[in-house]
Simulated assay, not measured.
Amino acid sequence: MTASEILTLDPTADVAQLTADIMDIESVSGNEKALADAVGAVLRSCEHLEVVREGDSLIARTNLGRQERVILAGHLDTVPLPHVQGSRGTVPSRWEGDVLYGRGATDMKGGVAVQLALAVALTEPSRDVTYVFYDHEEVEASLSGLGRLVGSFPEWLQGDFAVLLEPTNGTVEGGCNGTARFDVTTTGRAAHSARAWMGENAIHGVAEVLVRLRDHEPATVTVDGLDFRESLNAVLITGGTAGNVIPDRAVVEVNYRFAPDKTPEQAEEYVRSLLEGFDVVRTDAAAGARPGLNHPAAAEFVAAVGEEPKPKYGWTDVARFSAMGIPAVNFGPGDPLLAHSDDEHVHADAIRACLKALNEWLA
């Protein structure tokens, strides 16, 4: 797309085609400006919306004095484009029948298109609505556009209930697991590999760590009626200095996805107890979010969707809303198992069904 075309998104078009048009504006994390400009131009053209922008993140809202305010949120960025030659998960998008292929098809341009279409069409919603479009979701949490908005415009992010339009196959997913990362370090004594008996091999020392992780049985924890499956895994191992040196240090990176009944501190305590005797350092953590499905707005939304709600196993930004005291769920078009894949795709009808459900609930 040329620079002049970037500002011509048509939010009144078929929402599936709007998704394709949004995908065609490449927006890998750190490169969201063009898409933010295009979305901002649409939002500012709506007389019924108040709009603010911070960096490449935007908030638009109605202000009709309704008794309840709902937040719809989604991120503008994608993970990097695939390197596999011939991949269908790239940019620009491509239609194969009624299936849309390309980077962001699932995560989460369909949700962004639904938000934008609703923002324009719902001039008199039954609830006041705040629309949040933010950058830098697919990278470290410290860069999150939503996190910046919480700090810069907290009054704009007040609400009674929030829907994050992450892909859920059109099913409401309540809450989310928390996540934490740990470095587990083993130490030894360096020596020449020809005289290995003079040293102590730190890489061999990680064997016990791996055995404990392998034999660990992850829990399933019921929170507010939903069953959250936990997982605890080694995800990266580093160590050694050269091919002829007995290594004196090795590190196993461990990722723990924990149910939202735990705080990050409780999750850390659990991992330390499992790996007692080893040097364990927590390097990152984000709390999960309870489902909040007992809130009246959430119950009405679940009824409107008409599907049995499920738990969200991965971490999403519903946790940020939960931390602000706002019950939040995930609901969006596309199969979350396809997110970030080189075969990322979404069916046009899934995007239309998502728009229909939200429109009927809010209109």
Rank of each mutant, 00 (worst) to 15 (best):
residue 245 V to K: 08
residue 232 L to G: 11
residue 220 T to D: 15
residue 232 L to R: 02
residue 199 G to P: 05
residue 244 N to F: 14
residue 167 P to E: 08
residue 121 A to S: 15
residue 246 I to E: 15
residue 168 T to M: 02
residue 236 L to P: 00
residue 242 A to E: 07
residue 170 G to P: 04
residue 218 P to E: 07
residue 201 N to Y: 11
residue 193 S to A: 15
residue 139 V to P: 09
residue 209 V to M: 09
residue 239 G to D: 12
residue 225 G to A: 00
residue 191 A to G: 10
residue 122 L to P: 05
residue 239 G to Q: 06
residue 155 E to D: 15
residue 165 L to D: 12
residue 189 R to C: 04
residue 154 P to Y: 07
residue 200 E to R: 11
residue 215 D to Q: 13
residue 204 H to K: 04
residue 248 D to T: 04
residue 246 I to V: 15
residue 181 R to A: 08
residue 212 R to W: 05
residue 167 P to T: 06
residue 133 F to G: 08
residue 196 A to N: 03
residue 146 L to A: 11
residue 224 D to P: 05
residue 167 P to Y: 06
residue 236 L to V: 11
residue 139 V to D: 14
residue 242 A to H: 01
residue 141 A to F: 15
residue 219 A to H: 10
residue 233 N to W: 01
residue 249 R to K: 12
residue 233 N to L: 03
residue 131 Y to I: 02
residue 188 G to Q: 11
residue 221 V to E: 12
residue 139 V to M: 07
residue 160 D to E: 11
residue 199 G to R: 00
residue 210 L to M: 14
residue 229 R to T: 13
residue 204 H to A: 10
residue 210 L to G: 13
residue 242 A to C: 07
residue 142 S to A: 14
residue 247 P to R: 10
residue 181 R to I: 00
residue 171 T to R: 05
residue 163 V to C: 03
residue 141 A to P: 09
residue 155 E to P: 07
residue 237 I to K: 02
residue 203 I to K: 04
residue 220 T to F: 02
residue 235 V to H: 04
residue 154 P to S: 08
residue 187 T to P: 01
residue 168 T to G: 05
residue 217 E to D: 14
residue 176 C to K: 06
residue 189 R to N: 07
residue 137 E to C: 02
residue 239 G to H: 06
residue 157 L to C: 11
residue 167 P to M: 03
residue 147 G to M: 01
residue 169 N to Y: 01
residue 177 N to S: 11
residue 164 L to E: 00
residue 183 D to I: 00
residue 146 L to E: 12
residue 248 D to K: 05
residue 203 I to A: 12
residue 177 N to Q: 07
residue 228 F to I: 12
residue 169 N to V: 00
residue 244 N to E: 15
residue 225 G to S: 06
residue 228 F to N: 07
residue 230 E to F: 01
residue 201 N to A: 06
residue 137 E to S: 05
residue 153 F to G: 07
residue 134 Y to C: 08
residue 133 F to Q: 09
residue 161 F to D: 09
residue 214 R to P: 04
residue 200 E to W: 04
residue 200 E to K: 11
residue 136 H to V: 08
residue 168 T to S: 15
residue 217 E to F: 00
residue 200 E to A: 06
residue 178 G to C: 01
residue 205 G to V: 05
residue 245 V to H: 05
residue 123 T to L: 00
residue 132 V to L: 03
residue 201 N to Q: 12
residue 192 H to A: 12
residue 219 A to V: 10
residue 234 A to K: 01
residue 142 S to W: 09
residue 202 A to G: 14
residue 242 A to G: 13
residue 121 A to M: 08
residue 123 T to G: 07
residue 168 T to R: 01
residue 164 L to R: 00
residue 130 T to G: 04
residue 132 V to F: 08
residue 161 F to A: 06
residue 163 V to I: 15
residue 214 R to L: 00
residue 163 V to Y: 03
residue 180 A to V: 08
residue 134 Y to I: 03
residue 169 N to C: 04
residue 169 N to F: 00
residue 223 V to P: 14
residue 204 H to R: 02
residue 187 T to F: 08
residue 214 R to W: 13
residue 186 T to D: 09
residue 243 G to V: 10
residue 193 S to D: 14
residue 151 G to V: 10
residue 247 P to H: 08
residue 201 N to V: 13
residue 209 V to S: 06
residue 241 T to H: 07
residue 178 G to D: 11
residue 223 V to G: 12
residue 196 A to C: 05
residue 151 G to W: 06
residue 207 A to H: 13
residue 215 D to V: 00
residue 245 V to N: 02
